[in-house]
């Protein structure tokens, strides 16, 4: 007899435990305001990443198409996986001296681990991390980027 009572009470206990969990789910059905799901990509316009977020490396240019990169290769050395390649050239200055400037700032996004060491190593604050996170492309070659814009030159006064 005792065993039967124990058995039946265990069934009721089990049912009670199931409804206890269901109560939580029920609470959220009746309180839709507490649901925090975001509809991406519908909210692309309003979705803003934090300023610190590390999306990808960019070389900042001002409105006169000038950048701050002197081609010192500090970022290339700091990078643990060789995602940055700096190809420099020598140009002749008006006063006859030869000067090293960057030809191409090549950035391999496919190899980058977003560790931020290049940004910290840059002595002239030429590069920074952008907040762009949508990196998907159809072909891998598109992930190798040249960061300096065509015709851009070194900003006055940066060495």
């Amino acid at each position: 007899m005792k065993a039967i009572i124990k058995y039946i009470s265990s069934i009721f206990k089990a049912l009670k435990s199931l409804f206890r969990g269901m109560a939580v789910t029920g609470h959220y059905i009746s309180h839709p305001k507490e649901i925090i799901t975001q509809q991406y990509p519908e909210n692309r316009e309003t979705l803003k990443m934090f300023d610190m977020f590390r999306g990808e490396v960019v070389l900042t240019h001002n409105e006169r198409n000038e950048h701050r990169c002197t081609g010192c290769s500090a970022c290339e050395v700091a990078c643990p996986n060789g995602s940055i390649e700096i190809i420099s050239k020598r140009i002749e200055m008006p006063d006859g001296k030869k000067k090293k400037v960057i030809d191409k700032f090549v950035y391999h996004l496919s190899m980058c681990t977003f560790c931020n060491l290049c940004i910290l190593s840059c002595p002239t604050d030429a590069i920074k991390m952008s907040q762009d996170f949508e990196h998907a492309v159809f072909d891998r070659s598109q992930l190798t980027k040249v960061l300096n814009k065509t015709g851009s030159k070194l900003m006055e006064g940066v060495r």
Binding site: M49, F50, M52, R54, F114, M129
Partner: peptide
């Protein structure tokens, strides 16, 4: 439910450390 609460922590990391998972 687990991911709902985790998202708040991930936001803190994103704002301070700059990344969600691999913070360095």
């Amino acid at each position: 439910y687990g991911f709902r609460d985790r998202e708040m922590i991930i936001d803190i990391f994103e704002e301070t450390c700059g990344a969600r998972l691999t913070m360095n």
